[in-house]
């Protein structure tokens, strides 16, 4: 069992961050609303593109290569996540645990070498 009180500073930090960010966002909005003129019309709120209505969606289509990068990132991210429990439990698992992780890393290193060699890590 873990003593949750060690997370207290993080919780306090979260509360303070939340309070400050709320203040920074909403305080100027409220002040300007109370002090300035506020008369919105439909024309004022509509989007503006050189006097024409918008031609197209602002969302452009991404290249599929971003997807490849993201998948490779997920794989190595998971690999890193597996290192944490391995590191803290090494005294319980001993050499068997150490060897296990080295083999696991080797498997993914082969994958990395493959990805590198076929040029999956290159952009152009």
């Amino acid at each position: 069992m873990v003593d949750l009180s060690q997370y207290l500073p993080i919780l306090l930090f979260l509360f303070i961050a939340l309070g400050l960010s709320v203040a920074f966002v909403f305080l100027p909005m409220g002040v300007s609303r109370l002090t300035g003129a506020h008369q919105p019309t439909a024309e004022k709120l509509s989007e503006y593109e050189c006097g024409f209505p918008a031609f197209e969606d602002s969302r452009g289509q991404f290249d599929v290569r971003f997807y490849l990068v993201a998948i490779l990132f997920i794989v190595f991210d998971l690999e890193a996540a597996f290192l944490f429990p391995w590191a803290v439990s090494l005294d319980l698992t001993g050499w068997a645990g150490w060897t296990t992780m080295m083999i696991f890393l080797a498997e993914l290193a082969v994958g990395l070498a493959y990805a590198w060699k076929v040029g999956a890590l290159e952009w152009e």
Binding site: V110, G111, A113, Y114, K117, V118
Partner: peptide, 10 residues
């Protein structure tokens, strides 16, 4: 499989 993967990459 792992070895062949490297062979195919190179």
């Amino acid at each position: 499989g792992l070895v062949l993967l490297l062979v195919s990459a190179w």
